Amino acid sequence: MLSLEEKVDLAEREGDLQDVSELIVELYEQNDDNALDLCIKLAMCEYGGHTYKSDFQNIAALGVLHWNLKGLRKLGEVTISNSSYRAINNVTRLLSHISSKTLALFPLSHIRCANVVMLDVFSEKYKTSEWITVAKEVLIDVVKSVETDEKFPIGITVNMGFSTSENATEHIFAALIARWFNLSSSGIKQFSDLLTAKGRYEIDYHNFLASNPYILEPFHAQIWSKPRFGEELVPDFLIRSMDNSYTVVEIERPDVPILTKAGELSAQTTHAKRQALDFRTWVLKSGHYAAQRFPGIYNPYCLVVIGRESELNEMQIERLKQENESTQGILKIVGFDWLLSRVKSTLDNMINYGFDRQNFQETVKE
């Protein structure tokens, strides 16, 4: 008797749609991580170039739903590592149909194959907030991480023209916007891990932010790393926002205290604040010369990123608030965890509210 692994290998070379479906049912019965991996393998393989290979792939991709949200996440991970056009195309289409509550319109959802029938794709289960949220998260991660050299990744954008659901098309478009701004849960997780790492240098944090500028400003127009202000002044970053305002950024390290125990600015914070204000002064004095180098720059804001606000006590939190209020919006001092919290909220709001025009329409009606 052939093992499941051998049956999967055989299915890649021969067999029809019903054979593959019955094999997936056997994987349901085994119902472990190995069976899930084999089902995903069936969703990724090329079936020897079979004319109707997309049908084979799609019933296997649907089959992954048997393993619930764990299966959905694993499908996304393998699609990213596989990075083939067909896998990207099929999986992003499936995710967009789940996230938009239109799974019943996904190709082959109506087919009378045993494994698809067993899933009951018309069930309300797939329309719960948990399924929708995870589908959006995985969709964003896949859309961001594949075909990275392409401005308009064909494996994804083709779904906008051939989707059977307008709502699913909207969700593909929203994920492409997240890609454009480089937003993803995986990148945010990497930043979170970096903030808790020991023995890192300031340059490590600088380099990560330079590679992931959306953490500094989720919806930036431009960000310069180490721009030169005149002969000697070099801030860590300069941000040009979508409204054409500018922010000069100075960073230290997350393990450097923002305030002393007495509630005064630490020496490192005072130094970073002074540097940021010096950069701002240069812009104000340089006028036309500065504007030639950085279009439209005038009266920039200043941001100092240092330490962790979560480590402050109530007195220190109040003192930091007072310090920021005293600058009347010119300069703000924040912790690295403030950056993390803001970008998390940005992604959460995009997932919860940024995928559907209906949310905006309901707000307007109110």
Rank of each mutant, 00 (worst) to 15 (best):
G49S: 00
I98R: 10
E309Y: 14
R228V: 14
L42W: 03
A135F: 12
E232P: 03
E309R: 12
Q30F: 05
C45L: 04
I223V: 00
V283F: 05
T128I: 13
A61C: 01
K332L: 05
A276L: 10
W224V: 01
L312E: 07
G187Q: 08
K344F: 00
R179C: 07
C39F: 03
E252Y: 01
E170L: 14
M44Q: 10
D55C: 07
S81L: 12
L284Q: 15
L105V: 13
E29Q: 07
I258L: 12
K198L: 09
E323M: 08
H288R: 15
L176Y: 11
S245T: 02
N68Q: 10
V143R: 04
A35W: 14
S100W: 14
N313K: 02
P257F: 05
R200L: 10
N115C: 11
P257C: 10
N89T: 13
I111H: 04
K321C: 09
K101I: 12
N244H: 07
L94D: 02
R357S: 11
S241P: 02
L259F: 06
S245V: 05
L284P: 02
R179D: 08
N352Y: 10
D348Q: 05
L195M: 02
S186G: 03
W131P: 00
N115E: 06
K151D: 15
G48P: 09
A276G: 04
N82T: 14
T102F: 11
Y52A: 08
L75M: 10
E250N: 05
G155C: 07
G335V: 05
L108F: 03
F336R: 01
L105K: 12
E366D: 12
S3R: 04
K151F: 15
V158D: 05
K53S: 11
W282R: 02
T169H: 08
F56P: 00
S225T: 09
M242R: 01
H271M: 04
E14F: 09
L320C: 06
Y353C: 06
Y47F: 06
S123T: 01
F122W: 12
A290T: 07
L27H: 04
G287Q: 15
